[in-house]
């Protein structure tokens, strides 16, 4: 069965979505990622979606949920490399991914994860 690989780098997990994200694949990823975080006690997750060029509301929700689940398991999630078209679509769908950290590329995302988490008073309301 098709799976999205989850790579371990120190105490970080790197998830690169290179294929078209369909609904079942997204649900499998959700299972795999939570299992991996638990198993490796990872402190951070880098979700690289730079190859993703089509999103729908379901995938948008999955991305938000992944980040929320990771946080419950004590891992920070940074979504990196979102394309302009994807960002516009998500905004038009009303999904602003509140509370999800973002970075322009993997390198910057990595840097962000290595820094101690800064409390963000301006984006304090974590409800969608």
């Amino acid at each position: 069965m098709e799976r999205i690989p989850i790579l371990r780098m120190g105490n970080l997990l790197l998830v690169t979505i290179q294929v078209d994200m369909h609904d079942r694949l997204a649900l499998t990823l959700q299972d795999d990622l939570t299992t991996q975080i638990e198993r490796t006690a990872a402190k951070g997750v880098l979700l690289d979606i730079s190859a993703l060029d089509v999103v729908d509301s379901f995938i948008g929700r999955i991305i938000a949920n992944l980040s929320r689940m990771a946080r419950i398991l004590d891992a920070r999630t940074v979504v990196v490399g979102m394309r302009p078209a994807v960002a516009i679509t998500l905004v038009e769908l009303g999904l602003s991914l509140q509370g999800v950290e973002t970075a322009l590329d993997v390198e910057r995302g990595m840097r962000l994860l290595r820094r101690p988490p800064t409390p963000e008073p301006l984006r304090a309301d974590h409800h969608d």
Binding site: G81, M82, A87, I88, E92, S96, T102, L104, G109
Partner: peptide, 12 residues
């Protein structure tokens, strides 16, 4: 606000 949100989603 939409523009600001989209920019934030991209990581800037």
């Amino acid at each position: 606000l939409k523009t600001v949100t989209a920019i934030r989603l991209m990581g800037a």
